[in-house]
Design a protein around this nucleic acid. Structure first.
Lengths: 252, 252
DNA sequence: TTGCATAATTAGGCAAGCCTAATTAACTTA
DNA sequence: TAAGTTAATTAGGCTTGCCTAATTATGCAA
């Protein structure tokens, strides 16, 4: 009788039912349809299904009530949503509305065990005594700098490679800027620089920390850099190439 | 001709096509079907669609090739996937297979702007010079402690409230353990304690940082604590109640 | 208590993404 | 080059989750 895995849509319905019962004592088809932004027949059908699967009690034209398992499930889903929203807005500093949307989009697909890890990360950043300086605040400073355009991100430029190169002297790899590589060298992206506009455009091109690439054509102020990743050629202007920290094999 | 939003399924097909072309020079229906774990007719149909929408070049029984936009899109999706996998396994310390699965599940739903924030967080933890001690290593220590059962998490117990209470003297809220509240008090969960089994069971019940609750019935060693969140009653045994750090209003 | 507005349901349809069974095309090899 | 194998396609169907239009039930007001 009880199906283990509710579809995304069914999960949404279940959360809405819980919400409505909490807010207005009763959940009505009309309200459910409105909140889910679907027609009333769709809501009716969804209720019938949830009822068949044991999550709510419902017969045509009667009160909708959550069963014990329905309530438990709905509550778990709701909490997951709130935590994710919380994480997105508090930690990643995404504005409330976007955080909410994003939480909606992701919540159905994140396993409980990954959620646990995010919770641990959240707790670590906010509360862990090892972080006596409250790391989260440091990160927020960085975010603030990184959110503005090039001009406003002075504070964050200091994080960037050019100033303290090579970065990790003990290791076999050397860190430098993508713009410094010559044709034929291989590398891996380590970090994207402080300009938020350029950074987003790099991300949209699929360039981000971890990306492996091959320098196909070293450019300069007048001709673009061409790199290959994943079998695809990507062009970058000099400004962007100077905004990418990469790791390369130690030359000897 | 070009549809802006590819469905999840279409995105997967596109990534598979790029992968195959990179690995084996050509992408064949049979291989595509195998990787996606669907029948060949399904793969054929998907190719027809992607072709109509301008992402690949394909006519029946001929070579499948990516168009410029198809390649760009596929590459972006692939990178997103790798970064997320990277983040899950490197930062959150989830094992490779699970990280891969999780990245698959989430990648379609995470917006580029949220991805950017995750990248910034990743960079901050790994590289930001403000974190001279490489915060990521601190976090990993915590994770390691938090991953074991109660017995192995001695190191992390120190993070937990009981030892350094009250936590944030300057603030209007007071931190304590859920087990210390009396019937009728309201609180908000701040942190889940070090025992990994209990922590997961709390998360499954929908209790996590940020959850607001009302103490319905204060328990003890022999009778359970009963709290209300989101209109739902939840029972906790004493051991669990002592593993939850909560914030309450300052008593005066 | 009849009539009307609103809520809910039924009936019938559509798109996406999958399936199996049957057919056709393309290679391969004796 | 004819036969057999394998790959790909077509045809027809299923499920989920949505829709509109039409119908039925409910509750309130004159």
């Amino acid at each position: 009788m009880i199906k283990q895995n509710l579809s995304e849509s069914q999960q949404d319905y279940l959360k809405i039912v819980l919400d409505l019962i909490n807010e207005k004592k009763v959940a009505r088809i009309k309200e459910i349809a409105t909140r889910k932004d679907v027609s009333m027949p769709s809501a009716t059908e969804a209720m019938r299904k949830l009822s068949n699967e044991g999550y709510i009690q419902y017969s045509a034209r009667e009160f909708i009530e959550l069963t014990a398992i329905g309530e438990k499930t709905a509550h778990r889903l709701t909490s997951k949503h709130s935590f994710l929203k919380h994480f997105f807005s508090d930690v990643l500093n995404i504005n409330e509305d976007a955080a909410d949307q994003e939480a909606c989009a992701v919540e159905h697909h994140l396993s409980d065990s990954t959620l646990e890890r995010l919770i641990l990360l959240y707790q670590f950043l906010n509360e862990c005594e090892k972080n006596d300086a409250r790391t989260i605040n440091l990160f927020k400073e960085c975010l603030k700098a990184a959110e503005g355009g090039a001009q406003s991100s002075v504070a964050c430029r200091n994080c960037f490679i050019a100033h303290n190169f090579p970065h990790h002297p003990g290791e076999k790899t050397l860190h430098t800027l993508l713009a410094n590589l010559i044709r034929g060298q291989d590398g891996q992206i380590v970090m994207l620089g402080p300009d938020s506009e350029i950074r987003l455009s790099l991300i949209e091109k699929g360039l981000m920390p971890g990306s492996l690439f091959h320098m196909e054509e070293a450019g300069d102020a007048s001709s673009p850099f061409v790199i290959q990743t994943d079998g695809c050629l990507i062009e970058l202007d000099e400004e962007a190439a100077k905004m990418i920290e990469v790791a390369i094999e130690q030359p000897e």
